[in-house]
């Protein structure tokens, strides 16, 4: 079986997962206590007004009709009106999500960029200085609560040293909106002042957010690298007289990368949900912060929208991870679990 059919099969498999996700979110929203119409109108509205709104919102329809209506709306980019902003949730998501995604992708990029070399250094110097240093950094990364790390970083680098801006996404006029990703937008607009400012604003929150996944990636890379290094084929390559660097960074790294990839995928989904702590500390106008506010204000449409988007990103990231598995390891493509 070729790579293309593997890819196709994996992609098709995500459709039922996505439908399951919408169903789950929909049902969850319907079984939650509280009447959305009552919440929308406030405690002083008359019962008649609430009943009228219930009919208008379709809450009196049978559940499956409601679900179909919900799905129909989704397909047209309609997620219902958010009470807090009085706009369609879809518009809000488009407005806020790029900020979060930009932050999380940058953080993940940093985590991988530093985590993998850290893990390899640790593995190649097992139980020696390099390993212990890397372990120290990793333990610091996982054991530090992200909001605490964020506040410390903000205090030290932004306030005390004044090296980087303490909050917000950009310090100059923002470039014209193409994608909502300021890095991409400012490159499209060839506005390098905006690009510089964007990167400066992004650096601290992304770094704070990257600490925990970086530690995960480093530890996972280390352990799978060591495990893979003990495989028989590495001994065989050694007797073939290949240079050590080639064996380590080509053969062992590629074979050991699958488990690192799993962690990257999981952490990515986790970061999108968990980014709000960092977003609040750095006043980052992102979707996570929007979602937390929606939860606190009982804004059911907005909560559903945010959860759906985070879930969808999680599905997509895991699809990408699965595809990369197949790309890295032919055994996955051939549907074989191990070499035996």
């Amino acid at each position: 079986m070729g790579f293309r059919s593997y890819l196709l099969r994996r992609a098709i498999l995500t459709i039922p997962v996505f439908i399951g996700l919408t169903l789950f979110i929909f049902l969850l929203a319907r079984v939650l206590p509280g009447d959305p119409a009552r919440m929308a109108l406030g405690p002083r509205a008359t019962d008649e007004a609430v009943a009228a709104l219930r009919i208008e919102m379709g809450l009196d329809d049978p559940l499956h009709i409601q679900y179909l209506n919900y799905m129909g709306g989704l397909l047209q980019g309609d997620m219902g009106i958010a009470l807090t902003t009085n706009r369609n949730v879809f518009t809000d998501v488009l407005a806020f999500f790029p900020a979060t995604l930009e932050l999380v992708i940058t953080a993940m990029f940093l985590a991988v960029l530093f985590g993998i070399p850290l893990g390899i250094i640790a593995a190649l110097n097992k139980d020696r200085l390099g390993d212990n240093l890397s372990r120290l950094i990793a333990f610091f990364g996982v054991s530090m609560p992200v909001f605490w790390a964020a506040i410390l970083i903000q205090l030290a680098i932004a306030y005390n040293l004044g090296l980087l801006p303490p909050s917000g996404r950009i310090g100059v006029d923002r470039p014209e909106w193409y994608t909502g990703f300021l890095i991409i937008d400012s490159i499209i607009a060839l506005n390098f002042e905006a690009l510089r400012s964007t990167l400066a604003h992004l650096a601290l929150p992304a770094f704070a957010l990257a600490l925990a996944p970086m530690a995960d990636v480093a530890r996972m890379t280390r352990s799978s690298f060591i495990e893979e290094y003990n495989e028989d084929y590495v001994r065989a390559l050694e007797t073939q007289g290949l240079p050590g660097r080639l064996i380590a960074y080509k053969y062992v790294l590629k074979a050991s990368f699958a488990s690192t990839l799993t962690i990257i995928g999981l952490d990515f989904g986790f970061l999108i949900g968990g980014a709000f702590l960092v977003e609040i500390v750095f006043s980052w106008p992102g979707l996570a912060r929007y979602g937390v506010r929606a939860i606190l204000e009982n804004d059911i449409n907005a909560v559903m929208g945010v959860v759906l988007v985070i879930g969808a990103v999680f599905i997509i990231v895991n699809l990408i991870v699965d595809v990369l598995y197949g790309f890295l390891d032919p055994r996955v493509r051939y549907g074989e679990g191990s070499s035996a």
Binding site: Y251, A255, P330, A340
Partner: peptide, 17 residues
């Protein structure tokens, strides 16, 4: 000058290349 052939062909080849 030396070369070695190993016992178990299932585990002595890199699976990913």
């Amino acid at each position: 000058e030396m070369a070695m052939i190993f016992q178990d062909p299932m585990t002595h080849l890199s699976p990913v290349f």
